[in-house]
Simulated assay, not measured.
Amino acid sequence: MKVAILGTRGIPNRYGGFERFAEELSQELSKRGYTVYVTSPAAHSCKELNANNIFTVNLRVPRFLTSNLATLYYDYISLKWAIRNNVDAVIECGHSFAPLLLFISASIRGKIITNPDGIEHKRKKWGWIAKSYLRFSEYFAFKLSAQLVCDNRALVQYYSTRYKRKLHYIPYGAHPLMQAPGRPDVLDMLHINEYYLLITRITPENNVETVLSYFAHSDQSCLVVGDLTSGYAKKIVGKYSHFRNIHFLGAIYDQQILNGLRFYCKAYIHGHSAGGTNPSLLEAMACGCFIIAHDNPFNRDILGEQGLYFNNIATLGNCISQFEKLNNVEVNRVKEQNIQAIERNFLWEKVALAYIDVIERLKK
């Protein structure tokens, strides 16, 4: 059976959550006999992958298009490729493609599984034109997709109330650490023993500035891992890089290094607020991190009571003060409970089996 995963920037992951999802799900599906195709815009660097029934499909996107137009064009040629190659199921990451479903047959729409991600039109990075389009595309995704998957129960509640459709809850996954990783060299180069950690895409809705505003007036060290090439990221670096306790490490995609940074941090700070489940939260839990998360129903759905929550600079300070007062027994108890939650609810193997169930429903 042929499955196409569309809407990401390709694999291996060099960008974010959907790419991590595509990377892991394609591997799990291939183990179970599926042939998986993952599209990638050719303008982005992506290794050729042709192993274990996983294939990357590099599609050329003209460089002269603006970012938003390039996304729409990429959506179009990706879906066109899937139709032309007669795949059996299409997993769409995001819903910006959805207006295209108006112009394709019901038999093709019957192959579409859409994961809408978070509530896209609420992200602070979008202007009013983009937000209007995202509301428009969200509507058609929920009206015309054969199956819909949400990675967070708070999203299921939001969307099922809004569109009166049956939705499937399938979270993302993570791999629990089997043994303690090596201490990353970067920590020795920075002469750091104790630090708080953020691994994030540096965008407004991920509350990076809120977090760094606190550390700018703290003597605690904070490490930030994330791509620094966007305009907003450059603004954040310019504003906070002169603080000696704030360290920008740039984008890191090596899982061993990332796991080492997570494992040795004092606590992991998760600022995502725009909805859905981000794999970085699950991966922090899988590494046994104590987590301080932005207070919203999406993060609470995953983390529950095994962490602390903030919504501004003052409450973040309260969380860190509260954390610093905990003894080792209390901290280790929470860390172990986070690992157990991953083993119980968020293994990639279970994620794949749930997606296979949805794929099989397309035949009915």
Rank of each mutant, 00 (worst) to 15 (best):
residue 97 F to M: 11
residue 262 R to A: 01
residue 50 N to S: 15
residue 184 P to S: 05
residue 99 P to Q: 05
residue 264 Y to D: 14
residue 114 T to F: 14
residue 333 R to Y: 15
residue 22 A to M: 03
residue 34 Y to P: 02
residue 311 N to C: 12
residue 343 E to T: 06
residue 263 F to D: 09
residue 282 L to K: 04
residue 7 G to P: 07
residue 182 G to C: 08
residue 159 Y to F: 15
residue 120 E to W: 01
residue 323 F to P: 01
residue 86 N to L: 10
residue 8 T to V: 14
residue 339 I to A: 01
residue 202 I to D: 03
residue 192 I to P: 02
residue 221 S to L: 03
residue 260 G to M: 06
residue 109 R to V: 10
residue 214 Y to E: 00
residue 277 T to V: 00
residue 109 R to Y: 12
residue 251 A to N: 05
residue 160 S to H: 05
residue 164 K to N: 11
residue 107 S to P: 05
residue 256 Q to F: 00
residue 43 A to F: 10
residue 211 V to G: 03
residue 125 K to D: 09
residue 314 A to G: 10
residue 121 H to S: 11
residue 190 L to H: 12
residue 323 F to D: 11
residue 241 S to M: 14
residue 194 E to H: 08
residue 306 Q to S: 13
residue 57 V to K: 07
residue 360 E to F: 02
residue 121 H to W: 15
residue 44 H to N: 14
residue 173 G to D: 13
residue 316 L to F: 12
residue 263 F to N: 04
residue 200 T to Q: 06
residue 191 H to V: 02
residue 6 L to P: 01
residue 290 F to T: 06
residue 46 C to N: 10
residue 63 R to M: 14
residue 26 S to L: 08
residue 145 S to H: 05
residue 188 D to C: 04
residue 174 A to Y: 08
residue 269 I to Q: 02
residue 320 I to D: 06
residue 285 M to G: 04
residue 316 L to Y: 14
residue 327 N to E: 15
residue 285 M to D: 08
residue 270 H to S: 00
residue 29 L to E: 12
residue 13 N to L: 08
residue 229 T to W: 01
residue 127 G to C: 10
residue 79 L to R: 00
residue 207 N to T: 07
residue 339 I to Y: 13
residue 278 N to G: 03
residue 332 N to F: 00
residue 344 R to S: 11
residue 80 K to E: 14
residue 288 G to I: 07
residue 330 E to M: 14
residue 72 L to C: 02
residue 280 S to A: 10
residue 37 Y to I: 01
residue 19 E to W: 09
residue 338 N to W: 09
residue 337 Q to Y: 12
residue 69 L to A: 15
residue 342 I to Y: 03
residue 46 C to Y: 07
residue 262 R to V: 01
residue 339 I to D: 11
residue 267 A to C: 00
residue 173 G to Y: 12
residue 216 A to W: 08
residue 201 R to V: 03
residue 297 P to G: 11
residue 54 I to C: 09
residue 7 G to D: 13
residue 262 R to S: 02
residue 352 A to M: 09
residue 198 L to T: 07
residue 2 K to S: 11
residue 153 R to M: 09
residue 332 N to P: 01
residue 180 A to D: 06
residue 162 R to I: 02
residue 15 Y to Q: 12
residue 53 N to R: 10
residue 71 T to W: 15
residue 342 I to Q: 05
residue 127 G to Y: 11
residue 10 G to K: 04
residue 284 A to H: 07
residue 6 L to Q: 08
residue 289 C to F: 04
residue 180 A to M: 03
residue 28 E to Y: 09
residue 167 L to S: 09
residue 135 R to D: 07
residue 119 I to Q: 04
residue 68 N to C: 09
residue 308 L to S: 05
residue 57 V to W: 05
residue 94 G to D: 07
residue 234 K to Y: 13
residue 202 I to Y: 00
residue 109 R to P: 00
residue 77 I to W: 04
residue 231 G to Q: 13
residue 363 K to W: 15
residue 135 R to L: 06
residue 159 Y to S: 01
residue 241 S to A: 10
residue 161 T to V: 00
residue 349 E to D: 14
residue 294 H to E: 15
residue 344 R to Y: 09
residue 161 T to L: 03
residue 76 Y to F: 11
residue 317 G to W: 15
residue 176 P to V: 07
residue 9 R to K: 12
residue 231 G to M: 07
residue 239 K to M: 13
residue 259 N to F: 00
residue 49 L to C: 06
